[in-house]
Design a protein around this nucleic acid. Structure first.
Lengths: 149, 149
DNA sequence: TTGTTTGTTCGCACGAGTTGCAGATTGAGC
DNA sequence: GCTCAATCTGCAACTCGTGCGAACAAACAA
């Protein structure tokens, strides 16, 4: 995702308006590696701009995704996560706390696939499920429902 | 997933009861390669047993998943899909019609991962997104929302 | 600076998918 | 059959996300 000032230009160039709400979200998302959900982003935004609507957060996330500045990540359960990193990469999810991290996978596009009868133009999304450092150092797995960061 | 009769034994062995509803679902799921959703399974079940509750379908799917006889597949959007194939395999999803198919990926467990800082015991879930044979032969992509099978 | 236009914000209601609950029902062992 | 615990069912509630419309404000021209 581009910088807040570049996004400001890009939005105006597309005839979209640049509002304080959007600028705040640009700042909160730029370089954000936490893969926030709409809800956690709304919480962060509310701290700086009380009253900002969750609806506005969803709207802006949708706009940024449509413009290719943001990517939505499906980690299997819970709310959708948003990723300002639009490089060709994949994700690892902690099964205990729900933390999501970017990983780069060598040869992901050259995998030997068997059973692909007729499917064409396939691109892989890889999600590794495991345990993060801080959770691995805790007591035995108690099968908590994964929570967000 | 084991055969209906084996599941009947397994359920009784765990102190679970074997009801007509469960037996019907065992039959509908055994060898089913369509990755049905709870809803589509309920539709199929209702055809043979009018009045069966969607709640019962969810309950049985949850039980079977907990027993390791079934696996839940996350394809990114739409309802959860269930897969009686518990082999080590992955999935390919048609972006146009939502069809899900099993694929076997060579070397999926030996992928070179960069950025795995501290995560341990990671196992990959790979979902290939593409276009199935029947959709590929249709008119240009019209970005329909993917529907189920 | 003021006015106009058009996109945006926000709150609410709604929708899909799923789960919790409680009363009625029924499988399984005696 | 009888008993009891597990199950079934319908409904309410919940989570996550979207549609809608009135009020609002960015952008631009006069």
């Amino acid at each position: 995702m581009r910088s807040p000032s570049e996004l400001t230009e890009a939005f105006r160039a597309e005839g979209l308006k640049v509002t304080p709400q959007r600028q705040l979200l640009f700042r909160l998302l730029h370089g954000n590696g936490h893969h926030p959900s709409a809800d956690s982003l709304h919480a962060a935004a509310s701290a700086q701009m009380p009253g900002i609507s969750l609806r506005t957060v969803y709207q802006t996330l949708t706009d940024l995704t449509a413009m290719g500045e943001l990517r939505q990540v499906s980690i299997g359960c819970g709310p959708g996560r948003f990723d300002p990193n639009i490089d060709d990469h994949h994700h690892v999810v902690c099964e205990r706390c729900g933390t999501v991290s970017d990983v780069y996978v060598e040869g992901a596009d050259q995998l030997a696939i068997e059973g692909l009868d007729g499917f064409s133009a396939v691109t892989p999304s890889i999600v590794f499920h495991g345990e993060c450092v801080s959770c691995a150092s805790l007591v035995p797995p108690n099968h908590n429902s994964p929570k967000e960061h």
